Computed example of a mutant assay.
Amino acid sequence: MATRDMPKGLKPTIEFGPILIFFAAYYFGDLFVATGAIMITTLVALAIAYYYTRKLPAMPLVTAVVVTIFGGLTLYLNDETFIKMKPTIIYCIFTAILFGGLFLGKSFVRNLFDNFWNLDDAGWKKLTLRIAFFFLAMAIANEVIWRNVSTEMWVNIKVFGFTAASFIFFMAQVPLINRHSQDGESKTDP
Rank of each mutant, 00 (worst) to 15 (best):
V33S: 09
Y50R: 05
D120S: 10
G101R: 01
G71I: 09
L77F: 14
I40D: 02
G29V: 06
A2N: 13
A164R: 00
A37L: 08
I38K: 05
F116Y: 14
N178A: 13
N78F: 13
V155I: 11
L127S: 01
P18L: 04
T151D: 08
L20C: 13
A165S: 13
G71H: 08
T41I: 11
V67K: 02
S107H: 00
A47Q: 09
P57F: 07
W117Q: 11
T35D: 03
N156M: 08
M39E: 12
E15F: 06
I14Q: 05
P57H: 08
A58V: 15
A24N: 01
K84L: 14
R130E: 02
A25W: 03
I83H: 05
L61Y: 06
L98S: 05
A137V: 07
F133M: 12
A164D: 05
K125I: 07
A164V: 13
R54K: 15
R110T: 04
Y51R: 13
Q173E: 13
E15W: 03
S186G: 15
V33K: 06
M39G: 14
G161E: 01
K11G: 00
V174F: 12
F28V: 10
G105L: 08
F167T: 10
F99I: 06
A64K: 05
G9D: 04
V144P: 06
A132D: 03
I90R: 07
I40G: 03
A132H: 00
A137Y: 03
W146Y: 15
M39Q: 12
M171D: 02
L46I: 07
T63R: 07
L136A: 15
